Computed example of a mutant assay.
Amino acid sequence: MVAQGIADAVQAYTGLSPAAAVTVLALMLATYLIVSTLFVAPDASASSTPAAPPKAPQQQEQGPETETEPEPFVPPFPDPVQMGQITLEQLRAYDGKDAAKSILIAIRGQVYDVSRGRLFYGPQGPYSLFAGRDASRALALMSFDPNDLTGDLEGLSPDEMEVLQDWEDKFKERYPVVGRLPSEKATVGDQNGAQLDHEGENASA
């Protein structure tokens, strides 16, 4: 009875049969759901989908290929110290093997402090052979023969002397002069003077 009353009321109110009224209501409901989905879906998806993660720090974006490698550690070189006159034997101690000492090289009697060029003249450098030595003849001949590590310039050609002069000019521009080697003439003169003094002392005695 109740269902029949509802069916009669729907037909009297809408003018449609109960089946037609239900069909129209279903279509209206479906249309509402479709239309509401068009407007609600973006917001819903935004709320249901987690927010995009923040960008990673720059080092992740750069990748390992852009990471800079640490530079090799180079110990600070000591300040140049004026050595005055220094013998070849004393010069040997300044070959760069002792980090606390300067690296010295002699060219034509002048002693240069090349400590700032440790990468070249230090123990692992390509020119370490010259450190602590008189490199005059070796530089003139562009030689790495240990026998040429001497100040003897006898027999060198004008071209070789010019090469040596170029090296000497470069050293003067880049490295300070901190001492000198005793010249052979001065050494001979000192020996002669000492001998004369000794003879004079014997004569006076």
Rank of each mutant, 00 (worst) to 15 (best):
28 M>E: 15
28 M>C: 14
31 T>W: 03
33 L>F: 04
36 S>P: 05
36 S>G: 08
37 T>A: 14
37 T>C: 09
37 T>F: 06
38 L>E: 06
39 F>T: 13
39 F>E: 08
39 F>W: 10
40 V>M: 07
40 V>C: 09
41 A>C: 05
43 D>Q: 14
43 D>N: 15
46 A>Y: 08
52 A>K: 15
56 A>K: 12
58 Q>I: 15
58 Q>P: 15
59 Q>I: 14
60 Q>E: 10
60 Q>G: 11
63 G>R: 08
65 E>K: 12
67 E>A: 15
67 E>W: 12
68 T>L: 07
69 E>H: 13
70 P>A: 11
70 P>E: 08
71 E>Q: 10
71 E>W: 06
73 F>M: 09
74 V>N: 10
75 P>S: 00
75 P>Y: 00
81 V>R: 10
81 V>F: 02
81 V>L: 09
81 V>I: 12
81 V>W: 00
82 Q>K: 05
85 Q>K: 15
86 I>C: 09
87 T>N: 03
88 L>Q: 04
89 E>R: 13
90 Q>S: 06
94 Y>M: 12
94 Y>C: 04
95 D>L: 01
97 K>Q: 03
98 D>F: 00
103 I>S: 06
105 I>Y: 01
105 I>G: 00
107 I>R: 07
109 G>Q: 10
110 Q>Y: 09
112 Y>C: 05
112 Y>A: 11
116 R>D: 02
116 R>P: 00
117 G>Q: 03
121 Y>D: 04
125 G>N: 11
126 P>T: 12
128 S>K: 11
131 A>L: 08
133 R>F: 08
137 R>M: 02
139 L>Q: 00
140 A>F: 00
143 S>R: 11
144 F>K: 08
144 F>Y: 14
144 F>C: 01
147 N>T: 05
149 L>V: 06
151 G>E: 03
151 G>V: 08
151 G>S: 03
152 D>C: 05
152 D>T: 13
153 L>G: 04
154 E>K: 08
155 G>E: 08
156 L>E: 12
158 P>T: 13
160 E>R: 09
161 M>G: 08
162 E>V: 12
163 V>P: 03
165 Q>I: 04
